[in-house]
Lab assay of single mutants.
Amino acid sequence: DIEITTNGEEDAKRVIKELQKRNLEYHIEVHGNQWVIKVR
């Protein structure tokens, strides 16, 4: 598993777009303004 910590929603959406392009499965956890994306 890979864990990507982003700085808020805009940053997270940019990362998610890339993950979707590669058809990767991911899970999002929001901790305040930090979005942690866990990639399987």
Rank of each mutant, 00 (worst) to 15 (best):
R40P: 11
E18I: 12
N7I: 13
G32A: 03
K38F: 09
E29F: 08
N7P: 04
E9G: 06
G8F: 08
Y26A: 03
R14E: 09
E9W: 15
E25L: 09
E3V: 15
L19K: 01
K21M: 11
H27R: 11
V39T: 03
E29V: 11
I2M: 13
H31D: 09
D1I: 14
K17F: 07
I4W: 08
R22K: 10
K17R: 13
E29H: 05
N23R: 08
N23M: 09
N33I: 03
E3R: 12
L24M: 09
I37L: 01
N23T: 03
H31Y: 07
K13Y: 12
E9H: 08
E3M: 14
R22N: 09
I28Q: 01
G32M: 03
E25W: 08
H27Q: 13
G32E: 12
L24T: 03
I2G: 04
N33Y: 05
L24R: 05
N23W: 04
I2F: 15
G32I: 03
Q20E: 14
E18K: 04
G32L: 04
H27D: 14
R14C: 14
T5V: 15
V15T: 04
L24F: 06
E25F: 08
H27V: 14
I28G: 00
H31N: 13
K21F: 07
K17Y: 06
I2T: 07
R22A: 10
K17G: 09
I4D: 00
I28H: 00
H27E: 14
R40C: 15
I4E: 01
I2C: 14
A12H: 03
G32F: 04
Y26L: 05
E3D: 07
I37Q: 00
E10H: 09
K17D: 10
L19Q: 01
V36Y: 04
T6A: 13
T6G: 13
E10F: 08
N7K: 09
G8C: 13
V39E: 00
L19S: 01
T5S: 08
E18A: 10
K38L: 10
K17H: 11
K13L: 14
Y26T: 02
I16F: 02
K13S: 08
I37F: 03
K13Q: 12
K21Q: 11
W35Y: 08
T5R: 15
E29R: 04
E25I: 12
G32W: 02
V36F: 05
D11W: 12
I16L: 07
V36Q: 03
E9A: 12
H27I: 14
N23S: 07
I2A: 05
H27T: 15
Y26I: 07
I16W: 01
V30E: 03
W35H: 10
N23Q: 10
D11T: 09
I37P: 02
L24E: 03
K13T: 09
V36H: 05
I37K: 01
W35T: 13
T5D: 03
G8M: 06
H31I: 14
L19I: 06
N23D: 07
V30R: 09
K38I: 15
K21G: 07
H31S: 10
D1F: 15
I16E: 04
D1Q: 12
E25Q: 12
R22V: 05
V36N: 02
R14G: 06
K13C: 14
G8D: 13
A12T: 06
I2H: 11
V39Y: 04
Q34Y: 10
K38E: 04
I2S: 05
N33G: 12
K13P: 01
V39L: 06
R40F: 12
R22F: 07
H31L: 11
N23H: 12
K17W: 04
W35I: 15
V30G: 02
I2R: 08
H31F: 10
R14M: 10
N33Q: 06
V15Q: 02
E29Y: 06
G32Q: 03
D1M: 14
R40H: 15
K38R: 10
K21Y: 07
W35R: 06
K13H: 10
H31V: 13
I16K: 01
L19H: 00
K17N: 09
E3L: 14
E18D: 08
G32S: 02
V30P: 02
G32K: 05
H27Y: 14
K13E: 07
V36K: 04
L24D: 02
H31M: 11
R22G: 05
I28M: 05
I37C: 05
T6I: 15
V15F: 06
E3F: 15
N7Q: 11
T6K: 03
E9P: 13
W35D: 03
E29I: 10
E10W: 09
V36D: 01
I37T: 01
V15I: 15
K13D: 06
V39M: 03
G8T: 15
R22S: 07
I4T: 02
I4F: 09
V15S: 01
A12M: 13
E29T: 11
T5G: 03
N33V: 03
E29L: 06
I37M: 00
R40E: 11
T6H: 02
I4R: 02
N7D: 12
Y26P: 02
Q20N: 10
K21A: 12
I4G: 01
L19F: 03
D11Y: 07
E3H: 11
I16P: 00
N33L: 05
Q20C: 10
L19Y: 01
N23E: 07
E9I: 13
K17M: 12
Y26V: 05
E10N: 08
E29P: 00
Y26E: 00
H31R: 14
D1S: 12
K38A: 05
R40M: 14
W35N: 04
L19P: 00
E3S: 13
K38S: 11
I16D: 00
H27F: 14
